[in-house]
C-alpha cells in the first residue's frame, strides 16, 4: 500500500470578509445531497423523507430546517439536503435515512457555498440577482435557482438578513469576486 493520505481542499476555504456591515463567508463542512423522486414512487419517497427528517418535503421554492439539515425543493421531482458533515460519505448517510425510496447523488464537491449576512446584504444582492428579494416576495426559508453574473446560483433565505448562496465550485473565485464587488459598491 502506498503511503499517502488525501487532504480536503474546498474552494474558498476559510474565506470570511466584512465590508460596510455586510459579512460574506464560505461556510465549512457543508454537505449537499440531491434527492430525485422516482416516477410513480413520489408518494413513497415523500413519506420516507418525512419519517427520516421529521419534516415534510417542502413545496417548490421553499426550504425547511429539520434539525441540522435543510431540505430544499428545487423542482417537481428534485430536492437537496444540505447539512453539516465533513466525512466523504454524505450520500450514503442520506440514502440510508431514506431507506432507498428515492434516488440520491452526492453534490458536495460541485457546489461552493457563500453565506451573506448583515443589515445591508439585500442591497448588495439586489444589484446582481434578477429575483425580487423583498421580504414580501422572498420570505425566510424561501429558495430559488437563478443567475447572478451569468453564473447559476441557488439562493436560500436563511434569516431576516442572511442568505445562503450556492454556485458551481469550478467558478467559485468568479462568484466570490462578483459578490465582493457588489458589497464594495453599496458600502
Amino acid at each position: 500500500m502506498p503511503e499517502f493520505s488525501l487532504i480536503s481542499a474546498p474552494p474558498l476555504a476559510g474565506y470570511d470578509e466584512t465590508l460596510g456591515g455586510i459579512r460574506l463567508r464560505a461556510p465549512e463542512g457543508l454537505a449537499i445531497v440531491s434527492i430525485a423522486l422516482p416516477l410513480g414512487g413520489e408518494a413513497a419517497a415523500e413519506k420516507a423523507v418525512k419519517s427520516a427528517y421529521g419534516a415534510a418535503l417542502p413545496e417548490m421554492g421553499q426550504s425547511v430546517l429539520a434539525g441540522d439539515a435543510r431540505l430544499v425543493r428545487l423542482g417537481v421531482d428534485q430536492a437537496f439536503v444540505i447539512f453539516d458533515h465533513t466525512e466523504p460519505n454524505a450520500e450514503g448517510v442520506v440514502a440510508g435515512k431514506l431507506k432507498d425510496k428515492a434516488y440520491t447523488t452526492d453534490q458536495t464537491d460541485v457546489w461552493v457555498g457563500l453565506e451573506i449576512s448583515g443589515a445591508g446584504c439585500r442591497e448588495a444582492l439586489e444589484r446582481i440577482c434578477p429575483l425580487d428579494l423583498h421580504p414580501d416576495a422572498f420570505a425566510v426559508n424561501q429558495a430559488a435557482r437563478t443567475v447572478m453574473e451569468h453564473l447559476g446560483v441557488l439562493i436560500i433565505r436563511t434569516g431576516e438578513a442572511a442568505y445562503l448562496l450556492l454556485s458551481a465550485s469550478s467558478s467559485a473565485g468568479t462568484f466570490q469576486h462578483a459578490l465582493h464587488q457588489s458589497m464594495k459598491n453599496v458600502s
Binding site: 421554492g61 437563478t146 443567475v147
Partner: peptide, 11 residues
C-alpha cells in the same frame, strides 16, 4: 406556472 415571474435570461 410553478415559480412565478422569472427573467428570460434564466431560460
Amino acid at each position: 406556472p410553478l415559480l412565478g415571474p422569472r427573467d428570460a435570461a434564466e431560460f
